[in-house]
């Protein structure tokens, strides 16, 4: 379970490796909040190496998206596998987030 932060132009990319669940959600939240503190306003969360997400993980994404919007920024998602896509569809969170099929597409969309 690791979160790697990289930069592509003015977009901060967080890659989630392993699970995003109740035991590590705070780590992701802090990573993104630290980036916001440093001025980031475009954040992309890349789930290409993510195994599964629980309700706490989904909740932290909702919370961060809200925070980003308050600051005039945008949080977008990319690379959801079929299982993660199902999870977002079940909870209708696919209607709340802009989700791209690849990192490249997501970067173009900002």
């Amino acid at each position: 379970m690791t979160f790697t932060l990289t930069q592509s132009g003015d977009v901060s990319i967080v890659e989630v490796e392993g699970q995003l669940i109740v035991s590590n959600r705070q780590e992701l939240k802090q990573k993104v909040l630290d980036a916001l503190e440093k001025g980031a306003r475009k954040v992309l969360v890349d789930f290409g190496r993510t195994s599964y997400i629980d309700s706490s993980g989904l909740g932290v994404l909702v919370s961060l998206a809200k925070k980003m919007r308050e600051l005039g920024g945008d949080l977008r998602l990319a690379n959801l596998n079929d299982d993660l896509q199902t999870l977002f569809e079940l909870t209708k969170l696919d209607t709340l987030f802009q989700i791209s099929e690849s990192r490249e597409r997501a970067l173009e969309s900002f």
Binding site: S55, V62, L87, K92
Partner: peptide
């Protein structure tokens, strides 16, 4: 039901729904 307009933007309230789904 976490999919209603009010609940969709809540941070919590999806756990039992997911378990049952």
């Amino acid at each position: 039901d976490p999919t209603t307009a009010d609940n969709l933007v809540r941070e919590d309230g999806r756990g039992l729904f997911l378990m049952r789904s």
